[in-house]
């Protein structure tokens, strides 16, 4: 745990160094704190998100992700600190913020006895979009999320995935600058998750919409996020893109090579340890686990074969967010990785 605290300092300072040459952040949160009686839901959170970015807010349930999102939209008042979205203060100008920001709650509900189309029309009217334009936009959005065929069906007949897509269409109706998605992939089947994430990515890319999404499904989010922040017990532990997070966390040991070689002896291990880029070599269940800074598999295999050993297995393991997650939330031993993600 002590290590991770060190890493946090490193990462935050990195982010600060990067800041000056970037544009004005579209979401900037400073020292945000939210207390519920004695319980601190969000503690001194400082975060900034750039325009056009896809940012993943990751953390276990009850980490304060939803509370942070509610404060961004001005739906909950912070105990202290400031939130600025699109240059507007969320506490003082919540209406103006909500005009620019689309929000998809985690368990979205629709009026069951209204059709999907009518549900969207209602939202459009609440946004004061003139009737005819609203109809055009609703049609366009339903098409965009692939619900044109189901538009005239009642919302009660929609599946979970269709609801999420309808929710996304609703969020897009007001042509937002920022969309905030709270657990968008929750309860979807793998194909649904993939489609939804592709849709989100396409939106961000085509329309330049900034996306903030919260999740506890790490590797799902890993696919599309430009940056992620890991959020535990109301505090942002680390922030950055996935490779740099892994690098920072695992003592510059970005990947592990799992090598099956015969015979294994102490000289071989000692020799391997001398190789440039190798951080550690351990023997586990007759396989060698070699932690290294970069991919040295080709060089390694050459050395092994030259030294007369027989090489029968070589696999590159890269640390994914799951591993990072475990490290932070479950306080596992360093490099104990039970659920490493394999990369081909």
């Amino acid at each position: 745990m002590k290590q991770s605290t060190n890493m946090q300092i490193v990462d935050v300072s990195d982010a600060k160094l990067d800041a000056p040459d970037m544009r004005q952040p579209i979401i900037s949160i400073k020292d945000l704190t939210k207390m519920y009686d004695e319980h601190t839901a969000v503690n001194q959170l400082t975060l900034s998100i750039q325009e056009g970015e896809i940012y993943g807010l990751l953390g276990p349930n009850g980490a304060g992700k939803s509370t942070t999102i509610l404060m961004m939209l001005g739906l909950t008042e912070p105990t202290s600190g400031t939130v600025r979205v699109c240059g507007l203060d969320s506490v003082r100008q919540p209406i103006a913020v909500k005009r620019r920001v689309g929000y998809l709650p985690d368990d979205i509900g629709f009026y069951e006895d209204m059709t999907g189309y009518d549900n969207l029309m209602y939202t459009a009217r609440l946004n004061r979009i003139p009737e005819l334009e609203a109809r055009q936009r609703v049609d366009a959005m339903l098409q965009r999320v692939g619900l044109s065929d189901a538009a005239k069906k009642k919302a009660s007949t929609y599946s979970r995935g269709m609801r999420q897509r309808l929710g996304l269409a609703e969020v897009l109706l007001k042509k937002p600058e920022v969309i905030i998605l709270d657990e968008p992939t929750l309860g979807l089947d793998p194909e649904g998750v993939r489609e939804l994430l592709q849709l989100i990515k396409a939106l961000s890319r085509d329309e330049g919409i900034t996306v903030l999404l919260s999740s506890h499904h790490l590797h799902q989010v890993q696919q599309i996020c430009d940056r992620v922040g890991i959020f535990v017990k109301g505090e942002l532990l680390v922030e950055g893109d996935v490779p740099s997070l892994a690098k920072g966390l695992f003592l510059e040991e970005a990947l592990t090579l799992e090598v099956g070689v015969k015979p294994i002896n102490s000289e071989l291990i000692a020799e391997l340890r001398k190789l440039p880029g190798v951080v550690r070599v351990d023997e586990q269940d007759g396989l060698l686990q070699i932690g290294c800074k970069e991919d040295i598999s080709s060089e390694l295999s050459r050395i092994l074969i030259e030294s007369g050993c027989s090489l029968f297995h070589l696999q590159i393991k890269q640390y994914g967010l799951d591993e990072i997650y475990h490290r932070y939330f479950e306080g596992g031993e360093p490099n104990a990785g039970e659920s490493k993600q394999d990369t081909p």
């Binding site: 939209l73 739906l75 209406i95 103006a96 909500k98 005009r99 689309g102 929000y103 709650p105 368990d107 979205i108 509900g109 629709f110 009026y111 069951e112 939202t123 609440l126 946004n127 929710g167 609703e170 007001k174």
Partner: peptide, 14 residues
């Protein structure tokens, strides 16, 4: 309970 309140609150209305 239906989850429509939070959705409505996300719209620009008081």
């Amino acid at each position: 309970n239906k989850g429509t309140l939070s959705r409505m609150m996300a719209q620009p209305i008081h």
